[in-house]
């Protein structure tokens, strides 16, 4: 089966029902996308399929065939995406494990709504973070949107 990931075509020989997450991680060694719950609860495995945020832990790889798959590795070559930069500026991550998924979800939100309100952010950002970085995630998204930026307090 052929997969188009981060603008590159990969040929994989896997079961059609294998979740995309495991194809990315264990077959193609793209380890930036994380496993955490396996039941689409936490969002650590979020990737973009044709620009839509999807939880790859429950997405059979066959359903991504012929579509544009973007992972955290494909967001930018040098962490220059505005959302990545805002994440650094606001010092969002703690352990960092959920942040690939948080960033992919935030990028998708900002592509759809360039100036999201708090309610928009609440509705889109359903990913779990156990370290509790939610305040900084919100601040960083507002900053990218140009909504009254509130830089991380020193």
């Amino acid at each position: 089966m052929k997969l188009q990931i981060n603008n590159q075509v990969h040929e994989v020989d896997v079961e059609p029902e294998m979740p995309l997450l495991w194809v990315l991680r264990d077959i193609l060694d793209l380890k930036g996308t994380k496993y955490s719950c396996g039941i689409a609860q936490c969002g650590a495995c979020t990737v973009h399929i044709d620009g839509e945020p999807m939880r790859s832990c429950v997405l059979p790889v066959s359903s991504a065939e012929g579509k544009r798959i973007t992972t955290i590795e494909g967001l930018s070559h040098d962490a220059s995406h505005p959302v990545q930069q805002a994440w650094v500026k606001h010092q969002v991550p703690q352990c960092g494990y959920c942040q690939s998924g948080q960033i992919m979800t935030a990028v998708s939100l900002l592509e759809k709504i360039s100036k999201p309100t708090d309610a928009d952010i609440n509705a889109a950002m359903t990913n779990i973070c156990r370290c509790g970085t939610y305040k900084r995630i919100r601040d960083a998204i507002h900053d990218v949107a140009g909504n009254a930026p509130e830089v991380a307090k020193a």
């Binding site: 930036g32 996308t33 992972t71 962490a79 969002v92 991550p93 960092g96 494990y97 942040q99």
Partner: peptide, 13 residues
């Protein structure tokens, strides 16, 4: 700034 943060935003951590 935390030195580990850059790797946490591009999937390389």
């Amino acid at each position: 700034p935390r030195v580990d943060i850059p790797a946490s935003v591009n999937g390389t951590q």
